[in-house]
Amino acid sequence: MRDTAKVIIGILVFLVLVTTPFWYGKIAAESGKPPVLKVGTAEKECVMSKDFMRANHMDLLNEWRDHVVREADRVYVREDGRRFDKSLGNTCMKCHTDKKEFCDKCHSYSGVKEPFCWDCHNDPNAR
């Protein structure tokens, strides 16, 4: 059996599939560069270091949620003694005011679905 045509079609399908990221980027015409986030504050540092927050913010938020909702523990004391109110709306979003410009941009860039913060919380700055 000579199946040259079928084999060529098969190889082409394989090549198209395996190179999807390469041509999809060209078609979508997006730069693929990470979003630049807007922080509306004069504050110089976050509750934790920037690197920690970038990778682990969900853990911190989850921990705070549990402390506040289940243990009524509302005060976070950082290693250097500074105190923070464990609150998404009043602490986090005091600086990171714009959900669309801060949370959503990164989440949509990295394909993270809308977190369940917003199942209970309102965006305090969306008026």
Binding site: P21, G25, S31, K33, P34, D51, R54, A55, V112
Partner: peptide
């Protein structure tokens, strides 16, 4: 041991481009 996903995507997208 969580990593910074945005930086990783930046690396991958730059490789792809």
């Amino acid at each position: 041991d969580k990593v910074d996903v945005v930086k990783i995507k930046e690396l991958v997208m730059s490789l792809v481009a």
